[in-house]
Computed example of a mutant assay.
Amino acid sequence: MKITLAQQSNLENIDYDNLPFGVNFTDHMLVCHFENGAWQEPEIRPFGNLNATFALHALHYGQAAFEGMKAYRNQEGEVALFRPERNWERLNKSAERLLMPQVPHEVFIDGLKKLIEIDQAWVPQDEVKSLYIRPYLFSSSEFIAARPSERYTFAIICSPVGPYYAGAVKVKIEDVFTRAASGGIGFTKAAGNYGGAFYPTAKAIEEGYNQVIWTDHANHELIEESGTMNIMLRIGDKMITPPLTDRILAGITRDSIVTLLREWGHDVEERPIKVAEVVEAARNGELKEAFGMGTAAVVSVIQQIGFKGERFDIPTPEDGIASKIRKGLNDIRLGRVEDTHNWMVKVK
């Protein structure tokens, strides 16, 4: 691996008391190119600009996918990654569906560890702050013929971040627009999935919400995801989340939360959830909690759900399941309890 270090660090210019999400970047990045049918030598170099023409293939045909993950500094001062193998596996699942080459383990995992080792001073030791990591893969040939690219680029950039959402979230159940359809690419972290969500989300924001709850493409009768997150509902004594399909992203945070809840003795159901069921539960007081689950937000409490002009306030108890699971994940990530699942991977 080729390594070129930055001549001067930008770390001293970062205000860790004011961290807008994904705006500040660490001193270095990892870049690796796929060309002539093979991956070339990966390189860690100073964070900088993309060198490409306006014929860049990804800009025209959307062959692009990414991951979101985080590094944490535990109470002993050690830096560790949360379940990085799962991100590598999921990126390659997205790559397969988008007809892009598989990223080798030594490029993704070994390169990631070395990058974080070099920039480990950027990882905060904090309850709510962390180093957000963005691995991504895109087509980098420069032609505008409508066919797959011949060249691809894998890169990793990092950004110190605070909370994604400030406070509780208000969401609208979407009954017009669709995030994903069966047979499509909803299960991937394709860039286009997110670009296509901006317009419906902006319309919801105009109505006073923060995000939307996506529903199925056929009849908008089933709950699927909450914005860029998976969703968990507490109806009565049960914790309920939609089952994974080819329309729903297999969230790593989702999997971790489901695992912990079951270990703690909670009744967790992964099953289809009808919009009508959620609305009825909200009306009669059976909807006890709702929260989104994702890498960026981790656990994002939903305070209000709207549907067809009606708004339903959802309880947000300080000692509720959302608070419990947030603390449980933090305890593991920050080394306050034993990591029985070996989720944390330490960086030298």
Rank of each mutant, 00 (worst) to 15 (best):
I273Y: 05
R283D: 10
A166S: 14
H217A: 15
T253F: 09
V212K: 01
T228H: 08
R234K: 15
V279K: 08
L261P: 02
I185Y: 08
T178R: 09
G208K: 11
T178P: 00
T295K: 11
I223L: 10
E207P: 00
N210L: 03
G183D: 03
D237F: 07
F291V: 06
E286L: 11
L249E: 01
G167A: 09
D267K: 14
I240D: 03
Q211H: 13
N193C: 00
T215N: 06
G184N: 01
P243S: 13
A297R: 09
A282C: 11
P242Q: 05
T253H: 07
T253V: 14
E269M: 13
G265W: 12
A282I: 07
Y194E: 01
M293S: 13
S226N: 13
P272H: 09
V298Q: 10
A197H: 02
D216C: 10
F187T: 10
N210M: 06
S256V: 01
W264L: 14
N284Q: 12
L233F: 15
G167F: 11
T241G: 10
I231S: 07
D246R: 10
A166V: 13
K274H: 14
G265S: 12
I248L: 08
T253L: 09
E224N: 12
K203V: 11
G183C: 05
F187W: 09
R247V: 12
H217L: 00
G167M: 11
I213F: 14
K238I: 07
P242N: 07
A297W: 10
E224A: 12
R262S: 10
D237R: 13
T241P: 09
E277V: 08
L244Y: 02
I223F: 11
L287S: 08
G285S: 10
Y199G: 01
M239A: 15
E206C: 06
T295E: 11
I257M: 09
D267L: 11
T253Y: 10
I248C: 02
G236D: 06
V275W: 09
K170D: 07
A191G: 15
D175F: 01
I235R: 06
R283C: 06
F291E: 06
N193A: 02
I185C: 03
A282G: 07
G183A: 04
S256A: 14
D175G: 07
E280T: 15
G186I: 00
K189R: 09
E280S: 15
T188R: 04
E286F: 03
